[in-house]
Design a protein around this nucleic acid. Sequence first.
DNA 1: GCAAATTAATGATTTATTCAAG
DNA 2: CTTGAATAAATCATTAATTTGC
Lengths: 173, 173
Amino acid sequence: MYMGSSSGSLSMKVHQFTRGFLEHEAASPSLTLGCKRLRPLAPKLNTTNNDTTTTIVTPPFDLKSFIRPESSNSPPKLAYNEDKKDSSQVESHPGGTRWNPTQEQIGILEMLYRGGMRTPNAQQIEQITAQLGKYGKIEGKNVFYWFQNHKARERQKQKRNSLGLSQRRSSEG
Amino acid sequence: MYMGSSSGSLSMKVHQFTRGFLEHEAASPSLTLGCKRLRPLAPKLNTTNNDTTTTIVTPPFDLKSFIRPESSNSPPKLAYNEDKKDSSQVESHPGGTRWNPTQEQIGILEMLYRGGMRTPNAQQIEQITAQLGKYGKIEGKNVFYWFQNHKARERQKQKRNSLGLSQRRSSEG
DNA sequence: GCAAATTAATGATTTATTCAAG
DNA sequence: CTTGAATAAATCATTAATTTGC
């Protein structure tokens, strides 16, 4: 683990608030969880023991509306928007499912990474996204994910490399 | 990555002293609560082209601006008002430390969990938060975290339990 | 009966793993 | 195979219970 703390200093309580404003798609589920009408099915919230006769104002919200029939994590990744409020014109990428960074973006990101940045916080991400947005469509979450993945993968490579070096002495000829 | 909860004109004002959160934060990517002005997150076609007339060519913007050494800004957590308890005792102070759920909130959450909900998405969380907000201050990220933690800890218990049972089976008979 | 110290519980963050698109 | 995206696991950090001493 990294964090760079918890190694002796017992007063180290400083932690940087990194992630923050990543935006994510809602992955609208198939079920319509309309919040318009809720069925007053719930009888009442049986609170533990109420010494007061205060009737808990049971919210008329239907639990079923929340509970997803299937916890399948494979929601339709359709690029649709059930509630297109701000339908901006789509860029030149049709089925744009995921961010495909441009060279400029990658370059800048790597530059930042090499510069020492590992987990930018909301503020940083905001700026990075703003800058990278000039070179192509990008969102804050993309920046966040990129750093996460890049860091993780660099470590993987490092690890593999390290192992490889040890073994690499006989084969590989 | 989350944002505030609320639906409404809830003033998202953070009383953070030094936290420096420009906005509410969230950690896991899965939520998408729209900001006041930001759209509720379009799945992917939501790129508001921020076309500023700023002709700032900005080279590669200052990397340093982003890369912030930890030592640079380490605002003391502060918030240690141990004996400072003369006025704010309500749970309405956002500048609090962390969410401490009420029994009602826990009850509803457990109810939902038992109902089968595991990883509610933004939409669900939005509603849950709205409802739970009636019983006490709460944010969307709290709901998200709760489910994450609860699920994980239930599994831990299950695992431990399972192991215990396995051992018992041997000498059982 | 209260307060400091300790423990237990759990909210919040970070990291590792996995999944899926290209 | 590469890699963005998502999830789960592990960990940290803080708060509430509980214990201990006066």
